[in-house]
Design a protein around this nucleic acid. Structure first.
Length: 703
DNA sequence: CCCTGGGCTGTTTTT
DNA sequence: CAGCCCAGGG
């Protein structure tokens, strides 16, 4: 029988709890706005408040807004902070340079990329693009070399990226993280250098390149002074998640005036897998001995019971600044631990308990979140939420711009923008019937060859355009020589590219999308019907994309914003009611910096959270621990953790699970309330008809 | 050379 | 359970 927990809840929520902690703002303003400051801020201790107060203070002390650079983890975070500053000191603050490392790097590189041998209009490769590019290189190289087992493109990129972001030699990374490839390490190095070379040639920059190239420009004394002339103060949020390269960029930015403010929580460093290194923060004071240090451990967010759990988790951590979070809220509920028979029961429990919270305690759906370790853990829950008619938003999984149909449309625009983009060329070719991988790559090669020819002919400064290839006689001859089936399709693509090239000269990006979708254009919408099984949804997506494009004048801005804006990938499914309060589903990683009244953490089982994969990677237990800490400290009042006691394997057998070590540690301390479920079997009443397709939300575009 | 279907594998987190 | 590899027919 379920143990009944009666809950008394303060109905009125302090809208601005941080105001109580005036000392937070004081700390930011008492200290000189011209000298280094490190703020070690625990979860929920008013980090954002501190940063905004300091920025406002800097402006009041005469540093112009345009000379302040605010580096954050997401572009949204920067925008929010700038808005807050605006409230304090006025519209001038809109001139603050704010955003992620990558987006700010991009802004600088737009002006200076040619100095690095890049074409003026380069293309930003997202993860997906980088992967297909790498895949083709690996295929090419391993066709020449012996048939050793080679890493997948994804794995290869991961190794490379890790090497770059931690300044480690590739061989060392291979030795440490993928010893199975030691035998082919020479081939890997070759792939690596081919990849690097070709990126420059094609005008591609991947996410790592944005950072490397920014650093390179800063490292050169001529460009350094040009690029830092207008930077008088640098503030970095979430500093614990910077990698070596990012720390070096920051150091280079402030090398003249040393006016740097960093804010972070070493206990929330969760991006080790990406090369993030807490030591940047732990040894910050060694690099800036003149810096003042502030430690904020008063927590304004969570109940004391939730913080006890967080503190236990932290105590068991192996390294970091010692700190214990002190609560300012009144006593509330003890965090709950709910063992469930299996993940299906867990999903039912969560859905039903959300309804209870909503109906009996008046908790808004907006104030509830479900935070999990990996996207896959949310599938059961999504189905169950849909069944119960609970509106929800998924902030994880496949992103809007990563879907095949969106990429198809964008591929047209990308070639017009950068005709050397062979990833998009091959992608387009494959849209035609009778064109497979082989013909597609030939098409790209022919196109490419034609461009090179033009380049040789006229060395003038004129930008290469795709008509240059289309009008080339060799290219036309090569296409004409193809088999009839493939030729017809490719000729159509060439016609469309020609139209697009012209349209793009004078019209907005949205007009270009029209050319791709319109019946008299490429007629992509008809192709969609044949190609996918849910054409309606996808058509709607493309309309949304066109809508979104309306906001842009320049194709360049539009395309690169898309590559840099990963946030837009959000999916929602609200069952009917338009007033869009919805439960948030998110990975813990993406929930960083956010907070909710009630938080569910499911799947707290050894192997899932902490994840088995991560544990295999050596010192990652600490990362997983901090991840759990981040998850727990998102909750203000209610924290409900659960785990399935049995796991169903593929072959139908069932295995007992072990509760997560983070749970066991807390259980020993007697700070959890254990609930048991009373399971009642209910006939389904056709409510499942409400589910569409798989019952799992699809990405849509959100701003 | 393209396409399809069957069998097998491997499965995290992201700017 | 999706994505990859391979074999075989068109």
């Amino acid at each position: 029988m379920a143990r009944t927990i009666s809950v008394k809840r303060a109905r009125s929520i302090d809208k601005e709890p941080y105001l109580k902690g005036l000392n937070v703002e004081q700390s930011a303003t008492v200290l000189s706005p011209f000298s280094p400051l490190m703020v070690i801020a625990g979860a929920g201790s008013g980090k954002t408040k501190t940063l905004t107060a300091r920025v406002a203070h800097m402006m009041q002390q005469g540093i112009p807004a345009s000379a302040i650079m605010l580096l954050t983890f997401t572009n949204r975070a920067a925008a929010n902070m700038i808005q807050r500053v605006e409230k304090q000191v006025g519209p001038e603050s809109r001139r603050i340079q704010g955003g992620t490392f990558h987006s700010i790097a991009y802004r600088y590189l737009r002006q200076h990329a040619t100095k690095l041998g890049y074409p003026e209009r380069f293309t930003v490769l997202d993860r997906d693009d980088a992967e297909s590019f790498m895949k083709s290189i690996i295929a090419e190289v391993s066709a020449q070399k012996s048939a050793h087992k080679m890493p997948r493109a994804k794995a290869m990129l991961k190794l490379m990226s890790y090497a770059i972001n931690t300044h480690t030699h590739l061989n060392e990374v291979v030795l440490e993280r993928a010893p199975q490839y030691l035998a082919v390490s020479e081939i890997l190095a070759e792939i690596c250098s081919l990849y690097i070379q070709r990126k420059i040639d094609r005008g591609f920059m991947d996410f790592d390149d944005l950072l490397i190239n920014w650093f390179r420009l800063l490292d050169d004394s001529d460009t350094h002074s040009e690029m830092t002339r207008n930077v008088k103060a640098v503030l970095v949020d979430e500093y614990q998640d910077t990698n070596v390269l990012q720390a070096q960029i920051v150091d280079a930015l402030v090398s003249k005036h040393r006016n740097i403010t960093i804010v972070g929580d070493d206990a929330q460093s969760i991006y080790g897998f990406r090369g993030a290194d807490v030591r940047n923060m732990l040894f910050f004071a060694d690099r800036y001995p003149e810096c003042a240090t502030q430690t904020l451990t008063t927590n304004y967010r969570s109940s004391p019971e939730i913080l006890s759990l967080a503190n236990v988790t932290l105590e068991n951590a192996r390294y970091g600044f010692k700190k214990e979070l002190r609560a300012t809220r009144d006593a509330g509920e003890v965090p709950a631990l709910v063992p469930c028979a299996d993940s299906g029961i867990q999903a039912s429990f969560i859905a039903q308990h959300i309804l209870t919270l909503h109906q009996e305690e008046g908790v808004d759906f907006d104030d509830i979140a479900i935070l999990y370790r990996a996207h896959a853990h949310s599938i059961d829950i999504q189905v169950e939420l849909a069944r119960e008619g609970i509106p929800f938003v998924v902030r994880s999984g496949l992103r809007f711009f990563e879907q095949a149909h969106i990429k198809d449309v964008l591929a047209f625009l990308r070639i017009v923008e950068n005709p050397r983009d062979e990833i998009s060329l091959a992608r387009l070719a494959r849209l035609s019937e009778g064109v497979g991988e082989v013909t597609a790559s030939r098409f790209a090669t022919y196109f490419r060859g034609a461009l090179d020819h033009v380049q040789v002919q006229e060395k003038g400064g004129r930008r290469i355009r795709c008509v240059d290839a289309l009008h080339n006689e060799d290219f036309q001859r090569e296409i004409a020589a193809l088999r009839a089936r493939a030729r017809k399709g490719l000729e159509k693509i060439n016609r469309i590219l020609e139209v697009l090239d012209r349209v793009s000269q004078s019209e907005k990006p949205s007009k270009c999308i029209d050319v791709v979708t319109a019946k008299e254009g490429f007629d992509y919408l008809s192709l969609l019907e044949r190609k996918f099984d849910n054409p309606k949804d996808r058509k709607a997506d493309i309309e949304q994309l066109a809508d979104y494009a309306e906001g842009y004048e320049s194709l360049t801005e539009f395309l690169n914003d898309l590559s840099l804006t990963q946030t837009a990938g959000v999916s929602a499914k609200d069952s009917g009611d338009e007033e869009s309060s919805a439960v948030t589903l998110s990975t813990v990683h993406q929930a960083k910096g956010l907070e909710w009244r009630a938080v569910f953490i499911p799947a707290l089982v050894e192997g899932m959270f902490p994840s088995e994969m991560a544990l295999r990677e050596g010192k990652a237990e600490e990362d997983e621990r901090r991840l759990f800490y981040v998850a727990a400290t998102r909750a203000e009042e209610t924290l409900i953790m659960s785990y399935p006691q049995v796991k169903h394997l593929r072959d139908g057998t069932r295995v007992m699970t072990h509760p997560s070590r983070f749970i066991e540690e807390a259980r020993d301390e007697d700070i959890l309330d254990i609930w048991s479920l009373n399971i009642e079997d209910v006939e389904l009443d056709g409510a499942e008809n409400r589910l569409e397709g798989s019952g799992v939300a699809r990405p849509t575009l959100m701003r």
